[in-house]
Design a protein around this nucleic acid. Sequence first.
DNA 1: GTCTATAGTCAGATAGAC
DNA 2: GTCTATCTGACTATAGAC
Lengths: 223, 223
Amino acid sequence: MDTRDQLLDAAEQLFAERGYAGTSLRAITHLAQANLAAVNYHFGSKENLLCSVVRRRVVPINQRRLEQLDAAEAAAGPAPVPVNRILRALIEPVFEAGNGDGALGIYFPRLIGWLYSESITQIEELYEAEFSEVFSRFVDALAKSLPKHPRSDLYWFIQFTLGMLVTVLMTGDRIGLCTTGHCTQEPPEMLVHRLVGFAEGGFLGRDRANTAPGSRTDTTRKI
Amino acid sequence: MDTRDQLLDAAEQLFAERGYAGTSLRAITHLAQANLAAVNYHFGSKENLLCSVVRRRVVPINQRRLEQLDAAEAAAGPAPVPVNRILRALIEPVFEAGNGDGALGIYFPRLIGWLYSESITQIEELYEAEFSEVFSRFVDALAKSLPKHPRSDLYWFIQFTLGMLVTVLMTGDRIGLCTTGHCTQEPPEMLVHRLVGFAEGGFLGRDRANTAPGSRTDTTRKI
DNA sequence: GTCTATAGTCAGATAGAC
DNA sequence: GTCTATCTGACTATAGAC
């Protein structure tokens, strides 16, 4: 089914560039050099096509996340896994997604960003199914490494971390535009490094604040 | 011009809920109880309407940000402003936007999220005009407080911080859905507190890592 | 499996009466 | 300023020949 794959590739690219609502089946079939009717033949509907596009990438990403976490836990033995190792297991697989597809891999990360804002019912169900295990495994690992943190904080912190990740992915090559030219596009490994470093600081923040009273922290207004 | 304001309010709500591409002028005029032709009469086009919606909120937000930063710098005198005070000046005004409008203020934050993913030419120009001063002022303040950080890092960190902020805003009341029920909606002050705390940890992170060699940080793999 | 043709709907924009 | 009516085009989806 060559047409099917070409449709998936074209849809991935266009959904990433223009969003779901902003992309027409005409544009997809044109880019895929397929007939307008092909989408409905192969996928049944535009929404099903989106789900197929997403599932094709998300399933391997989450597999890879769990593999990395498994490996890190095995390496740590009974000790807790270092926080930045956990965060790298969460973040890095997203940037590796589609690396085998050459130029194609650049589109999916940005699509993830769109999915964050466009709430499409089938996609939300897909998320529920695909992310619940990943989510609980990572929170468990973080709770072991950061026993002083309330579990609810860890959930929020993961949200924050994924939020940073998603917006970096969304921005993509427009990063210079968003920062009036002060940031330039960087290789994925560098972005992973930056994100992991910043998030690690966020997760450890409370420890640092408690143990370093002389630090430049304004404590005059806590809620 | 009562109709004009009703159009702005309705557009703000619907753009926030469905995005720009996903919202029709028919839906906007219906909600505003105005005629379909009213949008083009008052604003000229759908895109101009969006710009008016955005400008109405962004201008006061950025004013407030600069006011808070001015106040913090005045209070600090010659000393650098505490990092978390700078971050609060950056984050808090967004949550205050539209507070005077009662229930209406809940929509704009989510719209900001959409604008992050939907790249609309006029909006990007508006950003360029409205954000350049804010951006440079905040980077200057942060550079003074964190002299060891390369300036390019500070730009990235601000991007990360705004990214967290935006995704929290986008998620809005769907936060429970995205975290399989482990996070629940919280009052704005609490969100500001969480965001500022996490971001502060991220900004100070490098200092902490350098000065606390015994911390739970995996240094086996730096890029 | 792939195509043409088209149904049926909705979009943004505008002309012109009032 | 507001309305009705309508233009023009694009959209998803489907029916049916090949």
